[in-house]
Write a protein that binds this DNA or RNA. Structure first.
Lengths: 65, 65
DNA sequence: ACTTTTTGTAAATTATACTTGACATTTTAT
DNA sequence: ATAAAATGTCAAGTATAATTTACAAAAAGT
């Protein structure tokens, strides 16, 4: 399922998928896939995303498994 | 680095690594590796572990990346 | 309208999470 | 002291996260 909280948090920081990807040292497609859902990223990437967006794991990734 | 919070939370539920592994549908070695550290599990596995131990992502996996 | 940026998506490759099986060591219990 | 259970660790295999390149469609800007 789509991760709308991530999409929203990214929008709140006015970052494109590509900019967020760069901050997390991953490809744009990886960020796209995570937002799109049906994807299972590693915890380290999730943590990197959270730190880039000033959010916590619970805020962005809890309860959508 | 070792994930002592996970180890502690598992102990609090009186579960062996093998029992927790079964609850999460992964191998015992995977749980062992995560507790030992220097490992990068997927978010879905982290969520499964959290649910098995009645904890959240922030409680077990935040701020040790 | 047109141009540029952003997003969606796909196929082929690479990196790595996770498995299986096995054995040694440590811990817990009798 | 002995046995059983739990943990640590290794090596080889499988599944899948993540990459690269590429192109099309949508959104935003002028």
């Amino acid at each position: 399922m789509k991760n709308l909280r991530l999409k929203s948090a990214r929008a709140a920081k006015d970052l494109s998928q590509e900019e967020l990807a760069k901050l997390c040292n991953v490809s744009r497609q990886t960020i796209n896939a995570i937002e799109k859902g049906d994807y299972n990223p590693t915890i380290n990437l999730c943590i990197a995303i959270c730190k880039a967006l000033d959010r916590t794991l619970d805020e962005l990734f809890w309860d959508e498994g």
